[in-house]
Amino acid sequence: MLHRFANPTRFLRIASIAQPWIAWATILLAGTGLYLGLFNSPADYQQGESVRIMYVHVPAAWMAMFCYTSMAIAAGIGLIWKHPLADIAAKATAPVGACFTFLALFTGSLWGKPMWGTWWVWDARLTSMLVLLFLYLGYIALINAFDDPARGTKSSSILVLVGLINVPIIKFSVDWWNTLHQPASVLRMDGPSIDESMLWPLLLMALAFKTYYIWVLLVRIRAEIISNKIRILRLRQVHG
């Protein structure tokens, strides 16, 4: 099953068919989510209109963790089963994840100032999220630091797997320690503690961010497969 998709040529064919569908899904979901979030959802009883930052902040934070987990799984498959496509998927995920992590930190800062009274605190949630950003940046730096791509892939895959430990720390930091950041509202044991009128735009935006990730991933994987072909062709020309 895995081998069917792991074939780069077959992947290229599937990707070029799937890409326009994913693109349209992203645009539709984001459009609906933005409409609900900005025009058709109530202000919060405590936070007023500032609650609308949630519709970009929370999906970005979810995607930051989702991308990292996906990257770690792909890197693990690449390391153990030596699937070239898995390595490419891990590499292609990193910039998207780094962007989402930065956005979660940035929008969180903009939300924290009016609500908490500070742009930044060194509590467990915010600090572990900053560590996640450094893990992404470290991975990107490491994978590009080697002349031999195989060695770069191996070292950076190990880094990703080591850093995976940070993901549960981020998720549960608000439950394990006293933090300024509040506990989870949606992904919690006893169901969401968020009104339905606010949950819908949040979930739509989260879905839009997810399809956006797949969209960028498809484009990037195609680009990386072609890039590998170019390298092989050039090597052949030099030696031929």
Binding site: M115, W116, G117, R188, D195
Partner: peptide
């Protein structure tokens, strides 16, 4: 320094 810590409940004022 005083920082506000908000809870994880989100709802419109009418619901509250």
């Amino acid at each position: 320094e005083v920082l506000a810590k908000h809870d994880e409940n989100y709802m419109p004022p009418e619901v509250a």
